[in-house]
Nucleic acid binder design. Structure first.
Length: 473
DNA sequence: TGTCGCTTTAC
DNA sequence: TAAAGCGAC
């Protein structure tokens, strides 16, 4: 059988893998390959936490391949050279991959496709990660959607969920002449190993993704619609890092959840699928507005009076020492697990971009380095949304009050107590705003900040004043 | 997927 | 006196 390179990127799975399927159905021996080439992703090369995740995911993928008689080839970039060498060494006649949509990698992949075809290879790319290609949905005028609701309405009108496809139990062996390099040898793990504590919370890899889906389907799905905002509960799917690496296809999630639909959980399933819709929307926006990882989409903010970050305060935000418990709990959850509950992400992001008035890109960069689910489309949309600078964004004047939010969503203070154990001794209303009783705080937690780094009222007022000053419209 | 301050309404 | 309603940011 002729060989076909199956170039793996953010699709580290075997089931529901269009490129792998195309190789097999085309009568090829798949040669699965991963090429490490972070420099080609420019300023948004994967951050440390998602690298650490990917290192484990690659090892899991290699094990899955080996259990079926194949294996993963690992190579170093430049990608064009690594592919050329793989093609030469294997005599491959075809190259298949699933598309990525980032502004740096997409032009690279388009150019590669052209070059490889000119050399007589059969090359084909597929949609391996989205319900819709980012260019597929368009407004009546033919432009991109900038508001989620009409985007989602259009998506639902054309809704089609791909068939599931299970990879065969046996795969053809990769030619023995192709050299091995262990996935474990890639420089993807942070030093020092700050990620050590992550892995009691996560199992990277396709099996881990499938297990996370089962846990969600049997648990948090019931009541997801209301509980997903509760950081103190396991109220979310926790599938985001698995989705980011492509360890599971979103259509498999939908196909697994839909049969569970009953009288009680219809709103829960709809609410979850709607979140997958935001992921689609994020990719749609990144495709049409490729500058948005670095620039405000709304031009009004070019003349907005962002504050020059004080590096000490920025570090306080990063490491959970702002003096505002719900934010510090979230930032410490992030540091300890590589993840933060979505509701808390919004509260922490609002504080950075409004109370502190730092440009959201400082926060986006920190999340990029520390989130295991860091995804350029989602991270960009999320930050521009909270900061009020993006598409269909919360208006800038919508300022979250972190005390009110904590009272509403962490009502028993359990989340705060979990990540800020030093505050667990404080009684309830005080735990949300400990500066209101300095003596009690000093006794319970002598090392915790006495006051928020920015006073809540003063920060809010300054943000609103800056917004007014940035002009009409 | 907000907050605040003010007014109105209900008791 | 407090909950509910409303407009402005």
């Amino acid at each position: 059988m002729p060989n076909a390179i199956v170039w793996l990127r953010n699709d580290l799975r075997l089931d529901d893998h269009p490129a792998l399927r195309a190789a097999l159905e085309g009568g090829y021996t798949p040669v699965p390959a991963y090429i490490h080439a972070p420099a080609e992703e420019g300023a948004w090369a994967p951050g440390a936490a998602s690298d650490a995740w990917r290192a484990r995911s690659l090892i899991a993928l290699d094990a899955d391949l080996r259990s079926r008689g194949s294996r993963l080839l690992v190579r170093h970039g430049p990608t064009a050279d690594a592919l050329a060498r793989l093609i030469a060494d294997s005599g491959a006649e075809a190259v298949f991959w699933n598309r990525k949509y980032e502004p740096t990698t997409q032009p690279r992949d388009t150019a590669l496709k052209k070059q490889l075809r000119e050399r007589g290879l059969r090359v084909k790319s597929f949609n391996g990660s989205l319900f819709f290609e980012p260019w597929q949905l368009a407004t009546q005028q033919g432009g991109p959607y900038q508001v989620f609701t009409p985007f989602w309405r259009a998506a639902q009108a054309q809704w089609r969920v791909p068939e599931l496809w299970d990879a065969p139990a046996r795969l053809p062996a990769v030619p023995a002449t192709l050299a091995d390099e262990s996935a474990a040898s890639l420089p993807l793990s942070p030093r020092p190993d700050w990620d050590r504590s992550f892995w009691q919370h996560w199992q990277p890899g396709e099996a881990g993704a499938r297990e996370a889906l089962e846990v969600f389907a049997d648990g948090a799905l019931q009541g997801y619609h209301s509980e997903r905002d509760r950081p103190d509960r396991i109220g979310t799917s926790r599938l985001s890092p698995h989705l980011h690496c492509g360890e599971i296809a979103p259509w498999r999630i939908v196909r697994m959840l839909e049969p569970l639909r009953n009288r009680d959980n219809g709103a829960d399933i709809d609410a979850y699928v709607r979140q997958l819709g935001w992921r689609e929307f994020a990719h749609h926006l990144l495709h049409h507005f490729p500058q948005t990882p670095d620039e405000d989409l709304n031009p009004r903010f070019r003349r907005f009076d962002w504050a020059e970050p004080d590096l000490t305060l920025l570090a306080a935000w990063q490491r959970g020492r702002t003096g505002v418990p719900i934010i510090d709990a979230g930032m410490r959850e992030l540091w300890a697990t590589g993840y933060m509950h979505n509701r808390v992400r919004m509260i922490a992001a609002s504080y950075l971009s409004k109370h502190l008035r730092y440009h959201w890109s400082y926060g986006a960069r920190w999340f990029w380095e520390t989130l295991v689910d860091a995804d350029l489309a989602n991270n960009t949309l999320g930050w521009q949304w909270v900061a009020g600078t993006g598409a269909d964004a919360a208006p800038y004047f919508r300022v979250f009050n972190p005390v009110t939010q904590a009272e509403r969503f962490d009502l028993d203070g359990v989340y705060i107590a979990r990540w800020l154990p030093e505050l667990a001794a404080l009684p309830l209303p005080l735990r949300f705003a400990p500066w209101r009783q300095p003596e009690a705080l000093a006794t319970a937690a002598p090392d915790y900040p006495r006051l928020p780094v920015i006073d809540l009222d003063a920060g809010r007022d300054a943000a609103l004043a800056a917004y007014r000053k940035s002009g009409p419209r």
